[in-house]
Nucleic acid binder design. Structure first.
Lengths: 148, 148
DNA sequence: CGAATGTCAGGTCGACTGACATAG
DNA sequence: CCTATGTCAGTCAACCTGACATTC
């Protein structure tokens, strides 16, 4: 006997988003934890590989992450040799963070696992529905990132 | 200069869900905090009003909440007189939790604020798209709740 | 004897605030 | 002078674990 959530909540977008995001976190965390990583580490590596070296503040703006959390996560990645960090000589306030070869290799392995988690997460949806969902979510997310 | 997230993340369902859920949390928390409440308090009141009195374990199963967090949240609600708690005489392990008149009144006010937050959250979508999104999310959530 | 319930202590992660030194 | 950057200390909500006494 499992018990269903109140109908009022199953019509509430913010509650559904919470629960769906939680299911996603469980699936993704399980994969990343096996490699001793967390979600922030993964997204930082993705951003560095896709768009090249960047300052921490810049990464934070693009990934919608807090400056102080970024500082901690980058330090951890550096400790594992997955990113490098050096002073920007043109603007000596900044750290230029770049992905290393080891970082790229790690990212490639992680990406497979993360993709597998997506398939589990979206199992009940058809391919067309998955694209539909992604498109709708993207518009919501873009709207709120633009607003802040 | 704001900077966009990496395209790879804007195609990743779990990342989009995370970000959208975060936007929802911000909107909803802002409304609830004004009344000194958190999201759990709200969902518990909704469940009790919609389906009547229930034990804490039962509420936890329906709201997908942990037993120990439930104990704390119910204690707080009881402290404010928004729910009542008594021993179930048929099964003396259980607490029967019920919403009080004060709880219903509070819920009515909260619901308006939470609905306003939904409108802000889904602002960029048409009505048809909102229904579409809710339908897709519901199927994802139901699937994962059934699995656990 | 299990198994379920309520409770508590404690851990972790992620979002966030406030402060500070340094650099522009 | 004000602002941006990186860093640190610390708060908070939510998720989760493990334990325990009580009751079925």
């Amino acid at each position: 006997m499992q018990g269903r959530p109140p109908a009022r909540l199953t019509r509430l977008p913010s509650w559904l988003l919470s629960q769906a995001a939680l299911a996603g976190h469980r699936a993704v965390n399980e994969q990343l934890a096996a490699a001793g990583m967390r979600r922030h580490h993964f997204t930082i590596l993705v951003a560095l590989e896709e768009d090249g070296p960047a300052s921490q503040a810049d990464l934070g703006r693009r990934l919608w992450m807090d400056r102080s959390d970024m500082a901690a996560a980058v330090a951890e990645l550096e400790g594992e040799g997955l990113v490098s960090r050096r002073r920007d000589e043109r603007d000596r306030r900044r750290n230029v963070v770049a992905i290393t070869p080891a970082g790229r290799a790690r990212l490639a392995r992680l990406a497979e696992r993360v993709d597998a988690a997506q398939r589990l997460l979206l199992e009940p949806l058809t391919d067309a529905e998955r694209r539909e969902l992604v498109g709708l979510l993207r518009r919501v997310v873009e709207h709120h990132q633009a607003a802040a």
